[in-house]
Amino acid sequence: MLRLLSKIITTGKRTEKCPQIPTYIEEIGENLKHAIHTLYGGRTLRIRHVDAGSTNGEEYELTALGNAFYDIERFGISFVASPRHADVLTVSGPVTRNMEHALKTAYEMTPGPKIVVALGDGACTGGIWKDSYAVVGAVENVIPVDARIPGDPPTPEDVLRGLLSIVTATRK
């Protein structure tokens, strides 16, 4: 225990500075604006992640967001265990036919105002699986999407920037 504590003390804070927020997400819709406005300017966001058939690349990157380096919690963003607790649904993967129903119910159960973010190329466009018989395609074919974070997979920094820009862009 003492070794653990001394390690904690000598290591110090390892969290990176806040990344620069790009302005490349232009397509901010009315729904998103309204949602952020209702949620106290997005000072706190609860995310429910839905894996709708991804390669798990996106999930690895999301997991990395919680570590000491990126520390997504400092922005008031946290991951929750149930769609009923969530403000944001992040969806990854080209929606497979098996996950289509699951995604729909998760969307239906999320209380409004809610934001849907398509995470990764698969979710944004269908990616390399586009037009396959096993997938439905991009997330917007199943549920309305408010924002997209492209990349295959997007790096943790991309995701962080994307989420922050969603919040800050509407504040202006």
Binding site: I8, T11, G12, K13, R14, T15, T38, L39, Y40, R43, T44, R46, N67, A68, D71, E73, R74, F75, G76, S78, D87, P111, G112, P113
Partner: peptide, 21 residues
């Protein structure tokens, strides 16, 4: 060794839950 959220975060998150559906 993380910076962590603001200590006032629970106030905001509970208030925002009150506004939700």
């Amino acid at each position: 060794n993380r910076q962590g959220p603001s200590i006032f975060l629970p106030y905001v998150s509970m208030l925002s839950l009150l506004r939700k559906e």
